[in-house]
């Protein structure tokens, strides 16, 4: 694994640290005792069978729903309320349908008291950065699925969060658009190396993108059953990296474990 540059003093502490985290919904135990750390600047992918509580973990780190038990620390500080260090890219479309692409991207700064003119200026820059110059005045329903994801990405990144939470963000896209988006995400990530928690059920996607792949067991009471380093060189091209021997070796190793969990989830 490549040595990490350490831009801030706080980053000697893990960006995200979960300890003994349990989450219940009514009587159902979704997550049963999870310990997970992510270093600053680390790209961590979480994989697991459907319904294993991967999204639940993201919501806990985001502070949207505090855990029933356990501790969440963000850069060493216990998390109370919403996680102000985190940007969250949701699985479903979270854009505000009554705002144009530009207004959607400008929303974060506007909510934080940036003057509307300046917020729009910055939003224009970010829309261009995700390849949507010229689409400023479109409403979300006038954009394709891939374009909406780009707007959502710009909407989150404009606030420069130190942590990026992504919940199967590209799951609904077709394969070509998806690989394009994955490469663009990696390029953007390469610029400032945020800490990323990336939830997916697609193991190939996880390995192609991440520094570490964490495997969750089938629910209920799912927990971490495997933690693998991905030592593939960067920068990567997600389409090409899939064809290398190293990639296949890691894939075989993790798939052996993930397969069991998927079978267990299906048997239920």
């Amino acid at each position: 694994m490549r040595p990490l540059t350490q831009p801030k003093a706080t980053s000697t502490r893990p960006a995200i640290a979960l300890k003994g985290v349990v989450q219940r919904f009514g009587g159902y135990v979704a997550v049963g005792g999870v310990d997970l750390e992510a270093a600053a600047g680390e790209f961590v992918a979480i994989v697991g069978p459907t319904g294993c509580g991967k999204s639940t973990i993201l919501n806990i780190v985001a502070g949207l729903r505090p855990p029933a038990e356990g501790e969440v620390r963000v850069f060493g500080e216990p998390l109370a309320g919403l996680n102000r260090e985190a940007g969250y890219l949701f699985q479903a479309d979270g854009l505000l349908p009554w705002k144009t692409a530009l207004e959607n991207v400008a929303l974060g700064p506007v909510l934080r008291g940036v003057r509307p003119g300046e917020a729009r200026q910055r939003a224009r820059h970010w829309l261009a950065k995700v390849g949507l110059a010229g689409f400023e005045d479109r409403y979300p329903h006038q954009l394709s699925g891939g374009m909406k994801k780009r707007v959502a990405l710009a909407q989150v990144l404009i606030l420069s969060p130190r942590i990026l939470l992504m919940d199967e963000p590209f799951g609904a896209l077709d394969v070509q658009t998806r690989q394009l988006m994955e490469n663009e995400l990696l390029a953007l990530w390469q610029e400032d190396r945020k800490t990323v928690l990336f939830v997916t059920h697609d193991l190939e996607e996880a390995i192609a993108l991440a520094d570490r792949v964490v495997v969750f067991s089938a629910g209920p009471a799912s927990r971490i059953v495997g933690d693998f380093r991905v030592e593939l060189p960067r920068p990567r091209d997600v389409a090409e990296v899939r064809l290398t021997e190293d990639f296949l070796a890691i894939h075989r190793e993790i798939w052996g474990l993930l397969r069991e969990e998927v079978m267990r989830a299906h048997a239920r």
Partner: peptide, 27 residues
């Protein structure tokens, strides 16, 4: 609920949620 959670994560306060999410959505 996703739009609501998204606006909250982007930093919307209670009053801002009303102006940017609840009212336009109810419109």
């Amino acid at each position: 609920p996703v739009v609501l959670a998204n606006a909250r994560m982007l930093g919307a306060s209670g009053r801002q949620l009303l102006a940017h999410v609840y009212l336009p959505s109810a419109a």
